[in-house]
């Protein structure tokens, strides 16, 4: 019993620490959008095959999350929001996250290839590479457009879901990609406006740090304008319908109006009311994406065009 103090300091990891390494909240978005992409595709898939495909797409997303935790360990250690993640807290070694990420990447890609097809599997491999290497290691630290380009990684899952069913791509999955891709910047920059995190100390060139808050507000409004046509265009493709279009018109009107108000507010008023509107806009952006994909799902059951 004399060596009991060898265990003092960083506690050993629990199972949930390894789960946290896979970023379960990001995975829930991946699961939902991949599922919608797979379901609205014009090829009927056996329900269990669809279930397995979504599971392994999500596992691939989790693997990318673990690789991101590995490469971002130094940033996470500096910022308050991420300080308690398993690696900065010392419960999991960096190398373990790298190993887990690589192993799960291989397993998820191979299994998706066996479950669905090898085009979807290759697409998943590319997505993991894009998020872990292009975004996490390279762009996040080097350009204020990091959020924009990194958004592509989050926008791939519905395309992978569609590819799992059809073995290819089409205009519909490309527009689903565009919907998430152009939604990501206003979503994250709204968060960056009210989460006063020390990106500067961490050496991450966020737009709020490099170009200031007024420029960030302009960018948010501009992206809500770019986003709207793609969201509506998706409603005119074979997966759309009157219900989707109605939902999309309302949500885009709200989103653009919100972007306009963000643009018109200055920092003093925002600080005075504790960024109340920026927080509301951030919540709206979550509903925006969720309800668009939910509308696609309901439209598909109800009968698209």
């Amino acid at each position: 019993m004399s060596d009991i103090h060898a265990y003092d300091g960083a506690p050993e990891a629990e199972f949930q620490d390894y789960v946290a390494l896979l970023k379960p909240r990001v995975m829930s978005l991946v699961v939902f959008t991949a599922f919608v992409g797979l379901l609205v595709a014009p090829v009927t898939v056996h329900p269990f095959i669809a279930f397995c495909a979504v599971i392994f797409i999500a596992l691939g997303g989790g693997a990318a999350g673990a690789l991101n935790m590995w490469s971002d360990a130094d940033i996470d250690a500096v910022m308050n929001r991420t300080r308690n993640r398993p690696i900065p807290a010392g419960r999991i070694q960096r190398g373990e996250a790298l190993g887990l990420g690589i192993a799960l990447s291989i397993i998820s890609v191979m299994m998706l290839g066996l479950v669905a097809n090898w085009f979807a599997a290759g697409f998943l491999a590319f997505t993991i590479f894009f998020y872990a290497v292009v975004y996490s290691i390279w762009l996040k630290r080097s350009t204020p457009q990091n959020i924009v380009i990194g958004g592509a990684a989050g926008a791939f899952p519905p395309m992978i879901g569609w590819a799992s069913a059809t073995g290819g791509v089409g205009i519909e999955p490309l527009l689903m990609f565009a919907l998430i891709f152009f939604w990501t910047p206003p979503h994250f920059w709204a968060l960056a406006l009210f989460m006063k995190e020390d990106y500067h100390k961490a050496g991450v060139p966020m737009l709020t740090v490099t170009h200031g808050r007024a420029a960030t507000r302009r960018h948010i409004f501009a992206y809500t304008l770019v986003l709207a046509p793609f969201a509506l265009w998706l409603g005119l493709t074979p997966v759309g319908g009157s219900l989707y279009l109605a939902v999309s018109v309302v949500l885009n009107a709200l989103f653009m109006a919100g972007g306009w108000r963000i643009l018109k507010r200055d920092e003093e008023t925002a600080i005075a009311d504790g960024y109340a509107f920026e927080k509301r806009f951030f919540r709206l952006s979550l509903y925006y994406l969720f309800l668009h994909f939910l509308a696609l799902l309901v439209q598909n059951q109800w009968g698209a065009w």
Binding site: P11, E12, A13, E14, F15, Q16, Y18, V19
Partner: peptide, 10 residues
């Protein structure tokens, strides 16, 4: 307890 959680989870 932590080891048990890992073993059962895996």
């Amino acid at each position: 307890r932590r080891r048990w959680s890992r073993n059962v989870g895996l």
